[in-house]
Simulated scan of single mutants.
Amino acid sequence: MTEPPLEAALRDAIEDRAGPVLRAAGYEESGSTWRRCNPGGDWAVVDLETTSSDGIARCVVALAIVPGPWLDFMGEWLGRPPHQVNESLGLYRERLSPSGSPSGSPSGSPAGADGAWQAGDPAAAEEVAQEVADRLTYDGLPLVDRLLDRDAFLATLRAGDLGMIRPENFRGLFPFAEAVLLSEDGPSDRLEELLELARVRAAPGREDSAARYAAWIRARARAAGRHQGLGW
């Protein structure tokens, strides 16, 4: 299917404005997705998705942090290692939107129902592209850069903040996710406390899978402990 001209104009404008910002920050492009990996194996993902309908072009800016241990767990959960590190794999997931006006950037354009930027003509597409670049500069990239630090990520997780993933909706996820991250430090009392809390908070009908994944976490922690004991 041929890409609508206005959608193509918005995509190209975003590439021209936001692309240099992301490249300068060390991100590599693959289609609409930009990725950066730190030396510890933790990933930051920025997805700039453009769509169009009814003569309106839209852009959704999605951010994600995929810590290395969480990526390993997602491979266990999926039954195979992920082919690519995509935004949907993120433990922390958030969206930038036109609402609000970060310091030093233009005020946001009207948002669609899904929080997307909207453009109805090529001139508006250029304005949206600049706003996206500004929001990444002032808000998005500082956020994900901070969360690429594992200690900062753990502090954010313990504070009940995983972006769009809310603790009131996923009560068992937060202790479980912390256990996944701590598993690379070897067995510990804290790890067992987290696994017990995750078990208690598991959704009805998920007890068997929770026990299976807890066993995977414990095995991973034992392997990490052996390696540390050998000085590896």
Rank of each mutant, 00 (worst) to 15 (best):
M1W: 13
P4R: 01
E7I: 08
A8Y: 06
A13H: 07
A13F: 05
D16G: 10
G19M: 03
P20H: 11
V21W: 06
V21S: 04
V21P: 11
R23M: 13
E29N: 15
G31S: 07
S32I: 13
W34V: 08
P39N: 07
G40H: 12
D42W: 02
W43Y: 14
W43S: 06
A44L: 10
E49Q: 12
T51K: 12
S53C: 02
G55E: 04
I56A: 06
L63N: 06
A64L: 00
V66T: 00
P67E: 04
G68T: 03
P69R: 10
L71Y: 07
D72H: 11
G75E: 00
G75S: 05
G75V: 06
W77T: 07
W77D: 14
G79R: 10
G79P: 10
E87C: 09
S88P: 02
G90R: 05
L91R: 02
Y92L: 13
R93M: 09
R93G: 01
R95F: 12
S97E: 08
P102Y: 06
G104A: 03
G104H: 01
S105Q: 12
S105W: 11
G108W: 12
S109H: 11
A111M: 10
A111Y: 08
A111P: 07
A113S: 11
W117K: 07
W117M: 08
Q118P: 02
A119C: 02
G120W: 03
G120V: 06
D121G: 12
E127A: 15
V128C: 07
A133C: 01
L136H: 09
L141D: 00
D145V: 01
L148F: 10
D151K: 12
A152T: 07
L154W: 03
R158D: 09
G160K: 12
D161I: 10
D161Q: 13
G163P: 05
I165S: 08
I165G: 03
P167C: 10
N169K: 15
N169E: 15
F170T: 11
G172T: 05
G172W: 10
F174V: 05
V180E: 04
V180R: 03
L182A: 06
D185M: 10
G186A: 08
P187V: 02
S188Y: 02
D189F: 10
D189E: 15
E192G: 05
L195A: 08
L197R: 15
L197W: 00
A198N: 10
A202F: 00
A211Y: 06
W216C: 04
W216Y: 05
R218K: 13
A221H: 02
A221T: 04
A224P: 11
L230T: 01
